[in-house]
Simulated assay, not measured.
Amino acid sequence: MSRQQISFTIPGEPCAKGRPRFVRASGRAVTPQKTAQYEQLVQLAYMHHVGQEHRLNGPIKAHIRAYFTIPKSTSQRKREQMLTDELRPQKRPDADNLAKIVLDALNGIAYGDDKEIVYLEVEKHWAISPQVCVTLSEI
């Protein structure tokens, strides 16, 4: 039986999972609009790459690489250090929140439930063009 691997890219600046807001009147939790929009972008990127009917099965390894835009005010020397990974982004969003928004968005689409993720690796890098690269592998 062959193990499947799927890789795709989410364009744009990486986004973190926002905390749900509670409506006092109804007591219901509401997902922040920015979170909902980014989750939709993740789903579209996945479906564009592999189609709607493709799911991984069994235990899954997830590798997420987030690339952040280098600030325009950065010096040339520091910019080179950022592009060669001598300097890495130690800024928000947190790595765990980056993973959460991507994995939650793929629930029921790339796999049945994110409980199937048994290995997770998240990296943060600087880059010229912002994006998030996701690789999912059956193990």
Rank of each mutant, 00 (worst) to 15 (best):
A95T: 01
R77K: 13
R88Y: 13
R92S: 14
L56R: 02
G112K: 03
M47L: 15
P32D: 10
G12Y: 00
I64H: 05
Y111I: 10
R65V: 12
Q76E: 10
Q40H: 12
M82L: 04
L41V: 15
M82G: 01
Q81N: 11
I139D: 04
S129A: 08
E123A: 07
V118H: 10
Q131S: 08
D96A: 15
E39Q: 15
Q43C: 11
F8R: 02
P71F: 03
E138P: 03
I117E: 01
Q43D: 02
N97W: 14
W126H: 01
Q43P: 02
S137D: 03
K78T: 15
P59F: 05
Q33L: 13
C133D: 08
D96H: 15
F68I: 05
T84S: 09
H63T: 12
E80H: 10
A105V: 01
M1N: 12
R92M: 12
R79C: 03
V23R: 00
T31H: 08
W126L: 02
S73V: 08
V102F: 06
R92N: 14
A105N: 00
H54W: 10
D85K: 11
P89L: 00
D114N: 14
A45T: 04
V122W: 00
K91M: 14
W126Y: 05
H63S: 12
P71L: 05
K34M: 14
S26D: 04
V30M: 04
S73I: 06
T69V: 13
I109W: 02
C133W: 08
P14L: 13
Q81L: 11
I60G: 08
T31M: 14
N97C: 12
I64L: 07
K17S: 15
D96E: 15
V102A: 07
K72D: 08
R79E: 03
P59I: 04
Q5T: 14
P14G: 11
S137C: 03
A99T: 07
Y67Q: 02
H48K: 10
V42G: 01
M82Y: 01
Y119V: 07
K78R: 13
L103F: 00
R55P: 12
P20K: 05
M1P: 09
P14F: 11
